[in-house]
Design a protein around this nucleic acid. Structure first.
Length: 462
RNA sequence: GUGGUUGUAGCUCAGCUGGUUAGAGCGCUGGAUUGUGGUUCCAGAGGUCGCCGGUUCGAACCCGGUCUUCCACCCCA
């Protein structure tokens, strides 16, 4: 019995129209990566497990897709481990490879392995799929693309500024006006935790704070209490719940809160420099917003933290994120290489552009000219014409059989072909061909030996 | 990982308190129209009701399991 085919949950097929739209986004991002001086690399879909495990926290480890060993792997497991039924101890014995979970850790591995061939500072970009064994929901898949740009081997804050400009350039080019680039600094968060006396609870504190705009002040405080942060500490942190006003006003507030924290003050001055510089250079369509509650990616960020929110009114998780990590390559043994990078979430950007109807209409066109087929003899002349149009750079095709004209026209209509060519008996006798504009219905004849001028007239119309 | 939700024709969905042969719109195929598509008219094809099991004289409908969809939490792009 034939089985009904299906694909694993959280994965998708892409139709020609969808691929065209995805390519449009990828091309736009790639173009700006390259104009900013980034170079492409690619890494394998799967890595050795030890490269990935432990880099994303316990939560991350759970979401990594593990690949079973080849061969009779189960017979090689010792009886104690096997009968323990403990996934944590059994997994490493039967799985030594895992699908890549993001592009940043593989990049760090790449830098360490190729450190002697790389000229630092090294600016690389990478656009490849990643996999997470997550539960799918809106804008969340188990296979999705990340588009990363990172620079390692230099710690100038100008790089943070450039990444803000890069975000702005890409989203402006995509017509996505009104994105908000949120910025924060890990050092500021550390400073706050230090000042309120909750240094050891930094992660719990920031994770709770991160939810402020979502669940509100009361619930955030309740969560902090529950995680063991004292009432006194929360009271000390009160100004954080009232961070309104312009960026410079917020920076002033932070300075007074963090006056006693060296690391906190360093974070504030970094933020200030980045914000002031971006301000001086100006942005095309994005807004840069200081957000002290932003606390993503704490596992390896050490300085600036970025996150991009879609324009107001669009319900979507962040469409980009990034930050500075001073010691990412340290876990692979290469010390003191500072890195900073950002990521674009292709699949989410797609959903946002779709929702706001921002894809250009031209993407729907997959063929410029369809030549109708009138039979064997006419077909030969048509093929000649089609190949000369192709040489002229047009996407041209000949309908493969001499089906009824009605059917051929219907096909052209459905493919959204803007022009059709009629080259039948009549035209053959006259030595010309008739071009029909499918939108207006107008028809115009061209001499058979003058295909070039027709091709030119179309190309110039683009 | 936790909680909820969904599944009927290619697509979007009806289908009453369980009752004969499961419907509609769109799409598809053919014709009206042997050199003109998008409009109209006519005809036709297409369904193991997600899957497995149970209750019942009888299940698309009730029950259990499983897979899937979507949503929220956790976390994240």
């Amino acid at each position: 019995m034939a089985q009904k085919p299906s694909i694993p949950k959280g994965t998708r097929d892409f139709s020609p129209a969808e691929v065209a739209k995805r390519n449009y986004i990828i091309q736009t991002i790639k173009k700006h990566f390259e104009t900013f001086g980034f170079m492409p690399i690619e890494t394998p879909s799967f890595e050795n497990s030890e490269t990935l495990m432990g880099k994303y926290g316990d939560e991350g480890d759970r979401l990594i897709f593990k690949i079973l060993n080849s061969g009779d792997f189960i017979s090689k497991v010792d009886d104690v481990t096997y009968s323990s039924k403990n996934s944590a101890s059994l997994t490493p014995k039967i799985s030594e490879k895992a699908l890549r979970y993001d592009l940043t850790v593989p990049f760090a591995r790449y830098v360490v392995m190729h450190q002697n061939e790389i000229d630092f500072p090294f600016k690389r970009y990478q656009i490849q799929p990643v996999w997470r064994a997550d539960r799918p929901q809106k804008g969340r898949f188990r296979e999705f693309y990340q588009c990363d740009a990172d620079v390692v081997g230099a710690n100038s804050l100008l790089q943070e500024v450039e990444f803000v400009q890069l975000y702005d350039a890409v989203f402006t080019d995509l017509g996505l006006i009104g994105t908000t680039i949120k910025i924060n600094n890990r050092k500021v968060l550390s400073g706050i935790a230090e000042v309120i006396g909750a240094k050891h609870l930094l992660v719990d504190f920031t994770v709770a704070l991160d939810k402020l705009d979502k669940i509100g002040e009361e619930k955030v405080k309740a969560e902090m209490l529950e995680k063991g942060i004292s009432e006194a500490a929360i009271t000390k942190a009160q100004p954080l719940f009232e961070m309104t006003g312009t960026a410079s006003e917020q920076l002033e507030k932070l300075k007074s809160i963090l006056a006693d924290s060296e690391v906190g003050m360093l974070g504030v001055s970094e933020l200030e420099e980045i914000i002031l510089t971006v301000d001086a250079l100006g942005l095309q369509s994005a807004k840069l917003q200081l957000d002290v509650t932003l606390a993503r990616g704490l596992n390896y960020y050490t300085g600036a933290i970025f996150e991009v929110a879609a324009p107001e009114g669009v319900q979507m998780g962040s469409i980009g994120g990034g930050g500075r990590y001073d010691d990412l390559t340290g876990i692979f043994g290469l010390k003191e290489v500072s890195g900073v990078g950002i990521s674009f979430g292709l699949d989410r950007i797609y959903l946002v552009l779709e929702e706001l109807n921002l894809f250009p209409d031209s993407l729907d066109t997959s063929l410029d000219v369809l030549c109708l087929n009138f039979g064997k003899q006419e077909g030969l002349a048509s093929l000649k014409l089609v190949s000369s149009l192709r040489k002229a750079g047009l996407r041209a095709d000949l309908y493969p059989t001499d089906a009824k004209m009605q059917k051929q026209f219907k096909y052209a209509d459905k493919r959204g072909v803007p022009y059709t060519i009629l080259l039948g008996e009549q035209e053959l006798l006259k030595g010309n061909f008739v071009v029909k504009n499918m939108k207006t219905g107008n028809q115009q004849a061209y001499a058979l030996d003058d295909a070039a001028s027709f091709a030119e007239s179309i190309i110039s119309a683009f």
